[in-house]
Simulated scan of single mutants.
Amino acid sequence: MGTIETIINGKVATLLFFHPSSNSFPSTLLQQLTKEINALGNNKSISVIVLKSSGTGAFCAGASFDELLSVSNFEEGSQFFSGFANVINAIRKCPKLIIGRIHGKAVGGGVGLAAACDYSFACTKSEIKLSEIAIGIGPFVIEPAVSRKIGKTAMSEMTLNPTAWKSSKWAFEKGLYSELFETIEELDFRLEEYTKELSSYNEEALFEMKKVLWEGTSHWENLLYERASISGKLVLSDFTKKALEKFKK
């Protein structure tokens, strides 16, 4: 089922997620991640959160294909995709700055998580892909977060070419990644240095800056769930069921 773990060092909390299927997300793990982001947002002893995943492979493979295949009705589908809406809204409303550690490839919802972070570090192997159209759905829930970072044109370029990987350099140039490194070791050294410095700043100023960064997104409170309903309907199609089976094989 995967795990969510929080490690606190000084004023920096590291939120670590893991799933054996390339750090993908079933609904239970999305619920746990949302709950933990909300809890850390209320923790007065920290001022910065690092979002990272386990291992040296993929950062996040997005939605769990096993769970998508098990969806049998519209309510189940909408509820599952609302899990990603919950996480993105939790990040958006969290009073702490959230720093992404994108050590490997990100697909679908994983790209959405990276885009939702306030600042992000990545490696040269951290390629990205939005593959949803190829399986009969679309990146509807995460689109606002992705477009906010890289723009609608770049987002559509990814979405309408769902089998092609975009390089980490492309993602960096478009603004998805804030800093790029050759190795994980170099990334982690800089990440520790950066978060230590960031957490030493005036917490009130950081909080006010967080609000500025997310200005104009209050409508996401409804928009992301409307988008989840679109995905919840499309995931029931024969096209999507067959495509998911093919991708699993």
Rank of each mutant, 00 (worst) to 15 (best):
S199E: 01
F140E: 12
Y177D: 03
K93I: 02
Y225S: 10
S237L: 04
G112C: 08
K52S: 13
M155K: 09
D66C: 00
S200D: 13
T183I: 01
S126K: 03
Y225Q: 14
S21D: 14
A63R: 09
L187M: 14
T56A: 09
L30P: 02
L224D: 06
S47Q: 01
L234R: 15
E36S: 12
L16G: 01
C94P: 10
W165G: 00
D238W: 01
I150P: 09
D66K: 15
G232D: 01
I46T: 11
Q31H: 13
A114V: 13
A90T: 08
A106S: 14
N73W: 07
E193V: 02
T28S: 15
I91C: 07
E75Y: 06
Q32Y: 00
S82E: 02
S229H: 03
I91D: 04
L40S: 06
L40V: 07
F207N: 09
N89L: 11
L236F: 00
G55P: 14
L97A: 03
L68F: 00
F74K: 15
T195V: 13
F81R: 08
W165I: 00
F121K: 11
S120L: 08
N222V: 11
R148Q: 10
F59P: 06
I128L: 09
F181Q: 01
E215R: 14
K35V: 02
E204R: 07
I99A: 02
L69F: 03
K211S: 10
E173D: 15
P162H: 12
V235G: 04
S126N: 06
Y177N: 01
S27A: 15
F59R: 03
A243T: 06
G136D: 03
I142H: 00
E208N: 13
N9S: 15
E76A: 11
E192P: 01
K11I: 00
S78I: 00
G109C: 11
S126E: 09
S22Y: 09
A115Q: 06
E76K: 03
L191I: 03
A85P: 12
Y119T: 07
A134T: 02
A243M: 13
V48E: 10
